[in-house]
């Protein structure tokens, strides 16, 4: 096994120094504190700066820790935070679509429902928060599998149960379907999980454009679909909602 890499050791020492008592240090402070040549120190600082681990104050020229370090330490998006951010948008989605709205995230080998808004009629409905749905046949699952590589590999390893006569169980057909989902930016489930039920979903991104979940609506196939497939009005409502939640999470316009 090779010995430690000197430049990485030095970079680590610089980060520790910047994390210490004084928050901002000039180039010569850093160099002299660590006993390094100024040129070497500057090279390391510039690389760290490019990676976002260090930031340089434009006025004083001094260096401080960068925002990327905070993100590394705090990268995981809490699902309850996701629900809090999605709340108003998913309410609006349920109202405008007239169907039940769901927000799901990847959990183990399936989709965990983290938020559910009732269909806006007065029928008796049960809150499905905490329920699991399969990846290979639901709209939420297909969207996660299409856009999140981790979900994709989980889907490949999951059991492909044929829940209805329409469930895709051939991996090649599933890949074709995912390619279509990626191309269109949304996914559908036409009676592939429950007979008589169709759903449509779109991906939700965080501020780093990572797919963190999927949002969609589910309802009777007669209402969700017309002769052409999923009604375009519903697709638009779902994609509007996904964009709005993503924007609330800090993803840029797209």
């Amino acid at each position: 096994m090779p010995g430690p890499i000197q430049s990485l050791e030095r970079a680590a020492a610089i980060l520790r120094l910047l994390a210490g008592g004084e928050r901002r240090l000039g180039l010569s402070d850093v160099a002299s504190s660590l006993g390094l040549a100024k040129g070497t120190t500057h090279g390391i600082l510039r690389t760290l700066q490019q990676e976002g681990f260090v930031e340089q104050d434009p006025v004083s020229g001094k260096y401080q820790l960068g925002a990327e370090l905070l993100r590394l330490g705090n990268s995981y998006l809490d699902v309850h935070e996701l629900r809090a951010r999605a709340l108003v948008w998913t309410d609006d989605l349920a109202r405008s679509s007239g169907e039940a709205a769901y927000l799901g995230v990847l959990h183990q080998q399936g989709v965990l429902i983290v938020h559910h808004v009732f269909r806006p009629d007065d029928s008796r409905q049960v809150l499905e928060v905490g329920a699991m749905q399969p990846l290979h046949c639901t709209a939420l699952g297909k969207v996660l599998s299409a856009f999140d590589p981790v979900a994709h590999s989980e889907a490949a390893e999951a059991e492909w149960t044929a829940l209805t006569a329409r469930t895709l169980t051939d991996p090649a057909l599933f890949e074709e379907e995912l390619a279509l989902v990626r191309a269109r930016g949304w996914g559908a489930d036409l009676e592939e999980t429950w007979d008589g039920v169709a759903s449509v979903a779109a991906p939700v991104y965080d501020r780093r454009r990572m797919p963190v979940g999927a949002v969609g609506v589910t309802g009777a196939v007669e209402r969700v679909c017309d002769a052409e497939g999923v009604r375009s009005r519903l697709v638009a409502a779902v994609r509007d909602c996904a964009r709005a939640v993503s924007r609330d999470l800090g993803a840029g316009r797209f």
Binding site: A67, L70, E81, A84, R85, V88, R207, R208, R209, L249, G250, G252, R253, F254
Partner: peptide
């Protein structure tokens, strides 16, 4: 995409209805 700098996620405060975001 990519032109907008990522913004840090602001803290979510529990709010009264009159202060709802």
């Amino acid at each position: 995409m990519g032109s907008t700098p990522p913004r840090p996620t602001p803290r979510q405060e529990p709010q009264t209805s009159e202060e709802h975001p």
